[in-house]
C-alpha cells in the first residue's frame, strides 16, 4: 500500500477488537504500521462500528469508490495481490470519470 501513497487512495483500519487507543498507537509504531484507524473503543466508543458495519469476522475488507459506494467486499484476507489489483483498477476507473 506504501506504493499508493501519492495516489488518490486512502487505507483506513477499522479497529474492531478491544484495547486502549494509546496502546494501539504504540504497537502500530513498533510494528511499522502507519495507517489511520477508526477506533470504536474506550470512553469515546458509541458502537457505530458494530451497529453500522456488523463485521462478521476479522479481517474483512470493503473497497469504496470516490462517491462512497461499496464496490467490492472480502471476507478474510484475499491476499495483497488481489487487493492491490482491485484498488489499481478502481483508481484507473476514477481517473477516467
Amino acid at each position: 500500500m506504501q506504493r499508493l501513497k501519492d495516489e488518490n487512495f486512502t487505507f483506513i483500519g477499522m479497529y474492531g477488537r478491544e484495547g486502549d487507543p494509546a496502546e494501539i498507537a504504540k504497537r502500530m509504531k513498533a510494528e511499522g504500521l502507519a495507517w489511520r484507524n477508526a477506533l470504536d473503543l474506550g470512553e469515546a466508543a458509541d458502537g457505530t462500528l458494530w451497529s453500522r458495519w456488523a463485521p462478521r469476522g476479522f479481517p474483512q475488507f470493503y473497497l469504496l469508490d470516490g462517491r462512497g459506494v461499496i464496490r467490492q467486499k472480502w471476507f478474510g484476507n484475499p491476499g495483497e495481490d488481489v487487493l492491490d489489483r482491485s484498488v489499481d483498477a478502481l483508481l484507473a476507473e476514477e481517473r477516467g470519470r
Binding site: M1, E7, N8, F9, T10, F11, I12, G13, M14, Y15, G16, R17, G19, W35, W53, P55, F58, P59, Q60, F61, Y62, L63, L64, D65, G66, G68, L83, V87, L90, L91, E94
Partner: peptide, 9 residues
C-alpha cells in the same frame, strides 16, 4: 478518494 476499509485488530 478510493478507500479501502480493513476491519482488523
Amino acid at each position: 478518494r478510493v478507500v479501502l476499509l480493513d476491519f482488523w485488530g
